[in-house]
Nucleic acid binder design. Structure first.
Length: 351
DNA sequence: GTCCAGGTCC
DNA sequence: GGACCTGGAC
């Protein structure tokens, strides 16, 4: 594609974005950018971290909650880890909360947000996508912003036969071939909006696409087939048993290890997760105390690389044993308990 | 119910 | 290349 074709392609997408682009609480609108409005980096940075691997509609209430509670990066840096994890609970990929907090502390210590791409890359939780996005969106720098949306759009626009994930470098090169200094920040957001609203994973809405006439996959008549993917291995099943120990209006919780699955979040005591179902006899060693545990049911929860089947046991105790590991949490204050969705489901069976 | 999308880290 | 979560689509 020559320079003139690229300019035309970009222009048609930008025209579409000016009318059809999403309005988001943290987004700088094109008309504001046109008159030189410079974004506040804090809400944009926060939104980019939250949007990693997460749908925008899920992010919006979390973003509002964070901004209301911590209006600037200094406030977030000064927050306790417990508070940040508590507010993040439910959003998933909990390493992001740890990195977000560490990142806030580094930025607050530096006194400013980075003003070049490498400066962003050096921060925790910031990879190639986010560093490029920050430079484009904040400062209109012509970086190559490549997320899953952009990969899909490129795969279709050029009918790439190479399957993902191996095709990532090729798709990145193709995206790079469309980079000019024409409205860099708007373009980055426009192409991601196009992927989210029009060039969707299934049944793309080609009739409304500004790039339909240039799209090789549309020309071939099978845009929904792209991007091609190598077959995924099946997800293994794992089993666990958890013990909800209740004393009047309190339950026993523990903190999970900082790294690894659900790292740093709270949990209900339980067994390790094995590849076959637990009997009560095998599992009782992992219960916080002996007693007449009642089976309340089971929970299924799907992680990236395995499915989990958890049997939920419940016991009411009158006397409050002193836990060797963990603490008693007020049931009416579990909203602040940094509980991942798995354990919210578990407690939903008992409370 | 099952499938699937979506960046960074190690 | 594998680990890491959730909820919306189907």
């Amino acid at each position: 594609m020559n320079r003139q074709q690229v300019t035309k392609l970009r222009q048609s997408l930008l025209d579409w974005y000016d009318v059809q682009g999403r309005e988001l609480p943290w987004r700088i609108r094109p008309e504001d950018r046109a008159v030189g409005v410079i974004a506040n980096p804090y809400p944009i940075w926060l939104s980019e971290i939250m949007c990693q691997q997460t749908r925008i509609q899920t992010v919006i209430p979390y973003h509002a909650k964070f901004i209301a509670r911590w209006p600037d990066v200094q406030a977030l840096a000064a927050a306790s880890q417990d508070e940040v994890y508590g507010q993040w609970a439910g959003l998933g990929y909990y390493a992001r909360a740890r990195n977000l907090h560490n990142c806030a502390r580094q930025i607050a210590a530096a006194g400013q947000f980075p003003d070049h791409e490498q400066g962003w890359l050096d921060l925790p939780g910031i990879g190639p996508y986010t560093a490029a996005a920050m430079m484009a969106i904040l400062y209109d720098v012509p970086t190559n912003v490549v997320d899953g949306n952009v990969e899909r759009v490129m795969a279709r626009l050029f009918a790439v036969q190479n399957p993902l994930p191996g095709a990532k470098p090729e798709l990145r090169k193709l995206a790079h071939s469309l980079i000019t200094d024409q409205r860099s920040g708007d373009y980055a957001q426009a192409i991601m909006d196009l992927g989210a609203l029009v060039c969707t994973p299934k049944s793309p809405k080609c009739g409304t696409c500004p790039w339909m006439k240039s799209c090789a996959a549309h020309e071939k008549g099978n845009p929904g087939q792209f991007p091609l993917r190598t077959a995924k291995p099946p997800r293994p099943e794992r089993f666990g048993m958890v013990f909800v120990l209740q004393n009047e209006n309190q339950i026993l919780l523990q903190k999970r290890p900082e790294k690894g699955l659900l790292g740093g979040m709270s949990q209900v005591p339980g067994t390790p997760w094995n590849d076959r179902i637990w009997t009560v006899a095998e599992a009782h060693a992992f219960a916080p105390c002996a007693g007449d545990w009642q089976k309340m049911g089971e929970i299924r929860h799907v992680f990236t690389h395995f499915s989990l089947n958890v049997q939920v046991m419940h016991l009411q105790v009158g006397d409050r044993l002193n836990p060797s590991d963990g603490w008693w949490a007020q049931i009416d204050r579990l909203g602040q308990a940094a509980l991942p969705s798995l354990y919210k489901k578990v407690l939903g069976l008992c409370l």
